[in-house]
């Protein structure tokens, strides 16, 4: 009985370690020589799925993406380089600001940025002497402070620290690096999606309509609540914006801009910060051109855009992300990068 109990305890201990630190390599058990990692492509051989996820995400795109190339003038604005091609976070220090690197800038925020240790080792979710990269279990990888070097430049991590999510122990990775199959042993996704993912955008905020004083004869109030973002909606400064528009239901006519959620870029000294704070709910009365309450059926849309410009605020839909994947949304002066987050019809037959 004792040997069986011992095996059970050992199995539980191993399961516990996996639960704590994430995926297991499941690889060979013989000692393997350490290998040096001079490029994230070195990691792809063993971590093909992780590499694939990262490659399709915004971190991989941080140097080569069309949006950042356009906004930074192909990085002629050198101030952008620090965060878009950073040295390893463990080298500059957790919660410290990152510094720019000289080499491999095209790889952007890559495997080495997050996993390279100052002594040449590799930070991981478990320790192993048997796999090529010899990872060391490093809990700091999972903490919000790890992301802060770049993402607190615009207070995103601070917004999270001030939220209930932080008190509940819900970290950045819980939303932006979800468990691949719902269990720690399956590892976490490395796509790092946020504003680039429609499902995440939709889960961040709810948009509702109601009548003033709940009286059907009164005008509409549009209510928007930050229910799921661990930070303001949207977060970051400068380019990201979310806009509420409305028009009479059933109309194909012009849209009317109701409200913009955005933190202005530092040059825009006369533009107020209108981000929707974490957990906050705000309401906006729908008024017509004469400032009279609108009582008839209306269509409401919440658009999210990575660049805060529309060619025509009465026709924002012309700037929607192109359906054809071969079309570059950043090829035009005003990028076509708007995404419909929520769309609802209030009143009438709906």
């Amino acid at each position: 009985m004792k040997p069986i109990l011992g095996l059970l305890v050992l199995a539980l201990a191993l399961w516990g370690a996996t639960f704590l630190f994430g995926e297991s390599d499941g690889g060979p058990t013989l000692p393997a020589p350490a290998v040096s990692h001079s490029s994230s492509h070195n990691c792809a051989e063993c971590h093909a799925q992780v590499f694939e996820e990262w490659s399709s995400g915004p971190h991989a795109d941080s140097w080569t993406g069309a949006a950042v190339r356009k906004l930074s003038g192909d990085f002629s604005n050198q101030d952008c380089i620090d965060c878009h091609a950073p040295q390893p976070v463990f080298v500059t220090g957790i919660a410290e600001r990152v510094l720019p690197r000289i080499e491999r800038r095209v790889e952007g925020v890559d495997c080495i940025t997050c996993h390279a240790l100052p002594d040449g080792g590799v930070a991981g979710s478990f320790t192993s002497e048997t796999v090529a990269c010899r990872p060391e279990a490093t809990v700091a990888l999972t903490r919000a402070d790890f992301c802060a070097g770049c993402h607190d430049q615009h207070q995103t991590v601070q917004q999270w620290r001030d939220s209930r999510w932080a008190a509940e122990g819900i970290d950045c990775i819980d939303c932006h690096m979800p468990l691949r199959d719902g269990t720690p042993s399956g590892g976490r996704r490395h796509g790092m999606h946020g504003g680039t993912d429609l499902v995440m955008l939709q889960s961040a905020v709810e948009v509702r309509g109601s009548r003033v004083d709940d009286d059907p004869a009164n005008g509409w109030l549009i209510e928007i609540e930050n229910v799921g973002a661990g930070h303001s909606f949207p977060t970051d400064e400068r380019s990201r914006a979310a806009d509420l528009f409305w028009r009479p239901a059933g109309s194909e006519g012009a849209w009317t801009h109701l409200h913009r959620f955005r933190s202005p870029y530092r040059y825009e000294t006369d533009v107020p910060d209108t981000l929707l704070p974490v957990h906050a709910t705000e309401r906006y009365a729908v008024l017509d051109a004469d400032d009279a309450p609108v009582t008839g059926p209306i269509e409401v849309v919440l658009l999210y855009k990575r660049s805060p410009h529309y060619r025509d605020m009465t026709d924002p839909m012309q700037d929607l992300w192109p359906e054809d994947p071969g079309v570059d949304p950043y090829a035009t002066d005003v990028p076509r990068d708007a995404i419909v987050v929520h769309r609802l019809v209030l009143g009438g037959d709906q």
């Binding site: 069309a66 190339r69 356009k70 192109p322 071969g326 079309v327 570059d328 090829a331 035009t332």
Partner: peptide, 10 residues
Amino acid sequence: RRGPEFGATA
């Protein structure tokens, strides 16, 4: 040159 078919890579 600007046009829907003309991105950075192109």
